[in-house]
Amino acid sequence: MHISEGILSLPILAGGGAFAIIGTAIGLKHIDTDHIIETSLLSSAFFVASLVHIPLGPGSVHLVLNGLVGILLGWASVPAIATALFLQALLFGFGGLTVLGVNTVVMAGPAVAVYYLFGPMIRKEGRTRMIGAFCAGMVAILLSTCLLALALVGTDRSFLDTARLLLAAQIPLMLLEGVITMFVVSFLARVQPELLNFSSRVHP
């Protein structure tokens, strides 16, 4: 899911950087002082998730968990994901510093989107919550893949076929992330239910 250095064109990099800065600024404003630790813990979860590698079919995927982070943090997921991506680039060489903006938009943009799309569902009880959580995990990966494909095609039209292949290859990951997000949300609903309402309290 991380785009490497030296692939994207300058306008795409600059556009991604600008959107990432705006998103991070909005996100920082939305972080309630009482929930900074939760934000940093979810940022850590996102940071580690990329290292969890799962062999699926002929290839292999790694977790992203941006749906989970998004649905729990809302706008605060932008700075959480941006910081984790920065450390991943610095410590692991995933992505890179010049593509940090684009990678932030690719992963944090859908996180905010699923918060608005499925946030109300996970604050309900029972099956609605489970379906909402599954959809949040799945749709976040779907949107991220679309954004990634858009960044590649925006740089070079010849990436169009690769982008199509990419979309098909990510389907198993979409389902997997949906299941994991559902599992974690159902667990949080039992152990720490106020966390599911956390972002609604953050910005009323």
């Binding site: 002082t33 630790i37 934000t39 940093s40 813990l41 940022s43 850590s44 940071f47 910081t83």
Partner: peptide
């Protein structure tokens, strides 16, 4: 990396 993230959170808090 995890230490940095948690530490940053602590610092801001």
């Amino acid at each position: 990396g995890i230490g940095w993230l948690v530490g940053l959170g602590g610092l801001v808090a």
